[in-house]
């Protein structure tokens, strides 16, 4: 492999890694608030992309389709929490997790009925003219994906570290009962976490659609890869989620270069299995203890 090829794979890996990172972040946000693994996470990303395509097709400008999609997926995520998760609060985590599996089918089927079975795409945010970097070519959309991912991650970190409500959300992840005893409304934190997950997922879906197309069934693979990334970084750790996403994206891209493109999707699952066997707490090992 030449250096130019290597660089090419890295660029490609960082691009898909960004989407995995945001998807993993979605898993993390919901997990921290509720201890639920949301198996409809990938479908939220898919909905983000599909809705943006729909809005764009209906005549909205690209930025309008982006923002509109984010707003709609936020509503979907909040509605999902209200309808499917909250009523199961007393039934335990397992019932809620099963509800998320159910939701993934609902989202997928709805998408198929609304937009059909064909994969769709969006125009790139700022043209298709490739740029040359160190002998490798980069499409401008890659810069959008990576740039926006960095903006989102930094903004989230600032929110969680600096704002009182952000700290309240973290406190709920540590000990929800104790957080309530400080006057923090746990149900508001949960709703907020679902809304934020919806927003991030939608943004990821819209950004990636011009590069890799989107179809009603794209969500499950994105979800599994996001989950692998979240596990790799350490479930419950937002920094780990981002790190896991980028590592997975890069390893996957290099795997395509070194082994074969046919194994691309298998790599995420090999990583997931390795993490589960060797280091179940993930790279940054957030504590996965029970919560009272």
């Amino acid at each position: 492999m030449t250096f130019e090829q290597f660089l090419q794979y890295i660029f490609s890996g960082v691009t898909s890694g960004s989407v995995y990172a945001l998807t993993a972040m979605g898993f993390t946000l919901v997990f921290n608030a509720t201890q639920i693994i949301n198996f409809s996470q990938g479908q939220l990303v898919m909905l983000g992309g599909m809705i943006a395509v729909g809005l764009y097709g209906a005549g909205a400008p690209l930025w309008g389709a982006f923002l509109g999609s984010v707003a709609i997926v936020v509503l979907v995520a909040v509605g999902f929490e209200r309808i499917a998760i909250r009523p199961l609060l007393r039934k335990g985590i397992l019932a809620q997790v099963i509800a998320t599996v159910g939701a993934s089918f609902v989202f997928e089927t709805a998408a198929m009925l609304i937009w059909g079975r064909d994969a769709v795409t969006l125009p790139a945010f700022s043209g298709e003219e490739p740029l040359s970097v160190g002998g490798a070519t980069v499409v401008p959309q890659t810069l959008w994906v990576v740039g926006l991912t960095i903006v989102i991650v930094v903004a989230l970190q600032l929110f969680y570290r600096k704002s009182l409500f952000g700290k309240a959300v973290r406190a709920c992840a540590v000990d929800a009962t104790s957080a309530r005893l400080q006057g923090i409304s746990y149900s508001r934190v949960v709703i907020f976490s679902f809304a934020l997950t919806g927003a991030i997922s939608a943004a990821a879906g819209v950004m990636i659609t011009p590069i890799s197309f989107m179809g009603f069934h794209s969500g499950s693979l994105l979800g599994m890869k996001g989950f692998a990334a979240a596990m790799l970084g350490g479930l419950g750790n937002p920094v780990g989620a981002v790190l896991g996403g980028f590592i997975l994206g890069i390893v996957e891209a290099l795997g395509v270069g070194v082994v074969s493109a046919g194994y691309k999707d298998a790599i995420a699952f090999v990583i997931l299995l390795l993490v589960l066997f060797v280091r179940p707490v993930g790279l940054l090992g957030a504590k996965m203890g029970n919560r009272g």
Partner: peptide
């Protein structure tokens, strides 16, 4: 039931929530 991974200052701030 402190928020163990968070700083003393953050724990106090949350007390005032």
């Amino acid at each position: 039931r402190l928020f163990g991974p968070m700083s003393v200052e953050e724990n106090l701030q949350l007390g005032g929530y």
